[in-house]
Deep mutational scan, measured.
Amino acid sequence: MADQLTEEQIAEFKEAFSLFDKDGDGTITTKELGTVMRSLGQNPTEAELQDMINEVDADGNGTIDFPEFLTMMARKMKDTDSEEEIREAFRVFDKDGNGYISAAELRHVMTNLGEKLTDEEVDEMIREADIDGDGQVNYEEFVQMMTAK
């Protein structure tokens, strides 16, 4: 299944994987998964984290390695993001709930994920998604960005 991913997608997933893999040992533990999910405003229980890991832990060693992570991402993409997942993601970014993602809100979430971005990089990300040019990202623009192939 992971063989249907483009090189660009694999590179993006590698970057995402390293955000989860806090200690850089090449595997994601339940603790690391929990840290990232909490930084995104989720509050999973230990059991939920274990279930999430077990779902993709092909070799049964209790952690997720990069090939397992790729399989999980490929699977998720095949079920292409349901509207509800996209709306949920939008809410994570839209901290003040005004229906727009500002540069400050984007920077806040990315920083929580451990991504240190310059102001230019954040502005560039907003510009790429900002179709109507108002300097922020509304829900429609967010959907376009998330579903762009």
Rank of each mutant, 00 (worst) to 15 (best):
A47Y: 03
L19T: 05
G41R: 12
D51K: 03
E120N: 11
T30W: 00
K22D: 03
F90Y: 12
S82P: 05
G24W: 09
Q9R: 12
T45R: 11
A58E: 14
F17M: 00
T29I: 12
L106A: 07
D123P: 09
D65Q: 10
D51Y: 10
N112K: 07
R127T: 07
L70Y: 10
G99V: 09
D119N: 12
L70Q: 01
D21E: 14
T118E: 11
T63M: 03
M146Q: 09
V137F: 08
D79M: 09
T80C: 04
T30Q: 07
S82E: 07
F66Y: 12
T118P: 07
D134G: 12
I131M: 13
T30M: 03
E115D: 10
V56N: 03
D81N: 10
N61M: 03
K95F: 04
E120W: 10
M52P: 11
N54F: 03
K14G: 00
K95L: 03
V143D: 04
I28G: 01
A58F: 04
G62R: 14
F20L: 12
L117R: 05
S102L: 09
N98Y: 10
G133S: 02
E8L: 15
L113H: 01
N43Y: 13
G24L: 04
K31I: 12
N54D: 13
I131A: 10
E88R: 02
D94V: 06
G135D: 05
E46I: 14
G99W: 08
Q42H: 13
P67L: 12
E141D: 11
T27Q: 03
D23L: 00
T111Y: 01
M146W: 08
A129Y: 03
M37C: 06
M125H: 04
E124R: 11
I64D: 06
N54K: 09
E128K: 09
M1R: 08
S18N: 15
Q42I: 06
E48Y: 11
R91F: 05
E84C: 04
E32D: 13
F93K: 07
V56Q: 12
R91S: 02
K78W: 01
V92A: 12
Q144F: 03
L113C: 12
K95W: 09
F17S: 08
M73Q: 06
E68A: 15
F17V: 10
A103K: 10
I53P: 12
R91E: 06
I101G: 02
N98E: 15
G24S: 11
S102M: 04
Y139A: 01
D132P: 00
G135V: 08
A58R: 01
E120A: 15
R38Y: 00
L19Q: 13
I64V: 14
E84F: 09
G62Q: 15
K14E: 12
Q50G: 05
I86G: 14
K78R: 13
M37F: 00
R75S: 11
T45E: 15
K31E: 14
G26P: 04
N43Q: 08
D123C: 03
V92T: 14
T80L: 13
F142W: 04
L49P: 00
T111K: 05
V109K: 05
V92C: 08
T30G: 06
G60R: 09
K14D: 13
A148E: 00
L49M: 09
D79G: 12
N138A: 08
G99K: 15
D25N: 13
E12Q: 13
E120T: 02
H108D: 14
D119M: 08
E15C: 04
F13C: 11
G135P: 07
N98M: 15
E7K: 08
G26Q: 06
E105K: 05
F17W: 02
D25Y: 01
D132H: 01
A2N: 15
D134R: 04
P44A: 13
E48C: 07
L33A: 14
K116H: 15
E88A: 08
T71E: 03
F69K: 04
D59I: 05
I126V: 12
A16W: 11
S18T: 10
M73I: 11
I10N: 13
E115W: 04
D132V: 09
T35P: 10
V143A: 12
N112C: 03
S39W: 15
G62F: 12
M1P: 08
F142N: 03
E88L: 02
N138T: 08
I101M: 02
I126W: 06
T6S: 14
R127G: 11
F90G: 08
E88D: 12
A16Y: 10
T111A: 12
M52I: 12
E128I: 11
T118K: 10
I53T: 13
D123L: 00
D3I: 00
V92L: 13
T6C: 04
E141V: 08
D25W: 07
P44S: 11
M72K: 05
Q144L: 14
E68V: 05
N61T: 03
Y139G: 00
E15F: 01
V109I: 10
I101P: 01
R75H: 08
M72T: 14
L5W: 03
A47H: 10
V109L: 00
D123Q: 02
L33T: 13
F142R: 05
V137P: 11
I53K: 14
G97L: 00
P67M: 01
I131D: 00
E48N: 07
T35W: 11
E121Y: 10
F142I: 02
D130E: 11
T80V: 05
D123I: 15
Q9S: 08
Q144R: 13
D65M: 10
I10C: 15
E12Y: 02
R107Q: 05
T30F: 07
A148L: 05
R75P: 09
K116N: 12
T147N: 14
A11D: 13
D119Q: 01
I53Y: 13
M125I: 10
M77H: 09
F90W: 15
Y100P: 00
M72S: 01
M72N: 13
F66W: 02
D57W: 14
M125Y: 04
